[in-house]
């Protein structure tokens, strides 16, 4: 049954986030031949609309307002509810990002709807859309369906492939003017702690360091390797607690959950709380000098050795590969 599905596009560091394209792809599946409408919300965001069309949206609704410069649940909630009221979608897809996690329960509650969050795949069986999501910190999975009207989901970054970009696609871009008022939370300041560049949750390659890295300088060879691979640097809590790097890099149960194509764990023992954040990565490489380290149990490939020897060698070898290919 064809249905109209709404997605919310997210902008970070001046570009649309990849997860927004993945949300469009998921929306397309759920729409089942129906229309995919992308909502674009912010202070001045009109210029991003075409890209959403190229990525598969059939239509874009832009809500611009100076009060939408920073995300707030009230501001974005009012903007999105205005779009929902105008469009009456039967499905909604957000990214499972800080913004998506914060806003989706509010919208779901306003719509008296269920919400299936952190979805990693969508399939159609019978008349139903079945959503798979990790539970118990990734140690198990559940399949869920929406049983009451609206299908509302958030999708985990890096799991549902985005559609091929197609510049020949066209679609209508319209503006909706919304009166944004009574913001009860106000963002006074944003303190940037993460590095510009590759976003950990969306990175295809992550080079992560643990306590075995031994110092802040010890992270340098990991950064070089990540650079060569166009990836991001991550860390265990052990490394963060020891002050070798910022907590914003922490991967695991209390840090970020990542699912890159390639995860290279350097000097990380593989504690269960760390595995919770990375065990669903497609390919895992472990470098550790202790052959008994738990990380080898989840690794596809392992090298037993000193990371300070192995990592620079790896960087050189990947450099050669890049030159040849």
């Amino acid at each position: 049954m064809a249905r109209k599905v709404l997605t919310l596009a997210e902008i970070r560091d001046g570009s649309l986030r990849n997860v927004s394209f993945e949300a469009i792809a998921a929306a397309k599946t759920i729409a089942d031949g129906g229309e995919v409408v992308a909502a674009l919300v912010g202070e001045s965001v009109q210029s991003y609309a075409d890209e959403l069309i190229y990525r598969g949206a059939d239509r874009v609704v832009v809500v611009e307002n100076e009060k939408l410069k920073n995300y707030t649940p009230d501001g974005f909630g009012q903007a999105l509810m205005a779009v929902v009221d105008a469009e009456k979608p039967e499905g909604i897809v957000f990214g499972h990002t800080a913004l998506g996690k914060d806003l989706s329960p509010k919208i779901a509650t306003k719509l008296n709807s269920g919400l299936i969050s952190d979805v990693i795949s969508v399939e159609q069986t019978g008349g139903n859309f079945v959503f798979t999501r990790p539970i118990y910190s990734g140690k198990a999975f559940e399949k869920k369906i929406a049983t009451d009207g609206l299908i509302f989901v958030t999708v985990r970054p890096n799991n549902i492939p985005a559609l091929e970009r197609d510049e020949s696609r066209t679609g209508n871009v319209s503006s909706l003017s919304v009166d944004i008022k009574d913001l009860r939370t106000i963002v006074k300041e944003i303190v940037r702690k993460t590095a510009e560049g590759v976003d950990l949750s969306e990175a295809k390659v992550i080079v992560a360091g643990g306590r075995g890295v031994k110092s802040a300088e010890g992270f340098e060879p990991l950064k070089e390797l990540a650079n060569v691979l166009g990836g991001a640097v991550g860390a265990s809590r052990g490394a963060c607690d020891a002050g070798y790097c910022d907590y914003s890099l922490q991967i695991g149960q209390t840090g970020k959950v990542v699912t890159p194509d390639l995860y290279i764990a350097c000097g990380i023992s593989g504690a269960i709380q760390h595995l919770a954040g990375m065990s669903n990565s497609k390919v895992i490489v472990a470098i550790n000098k202790d052959p008994e380290a738990n990380i080898f149990k989840v690794a596809d490939y392992g090298i037993v050795g000193d990371l300070f020897e192995v990592v620079p060698l790896l960087t050189e070898e990947f450099k050669k590969l890049k030159v040849h290919s």
Binding site: I135, A140, E142, I145, T147
Partner: peptide, 20 residues
């Protein structure tokens, strides 16, 4: 409830990795 769990399953067992 407005959603329903229809199945719970464990991740496929990973073949043990290759230690070089």
């Amino acid at each position: 409830a407005k959603t329903k769990t229809i199945e719970i399953f464990l991740p496929p067992k990973k073949e043990s990795g290759k230690i070089l």
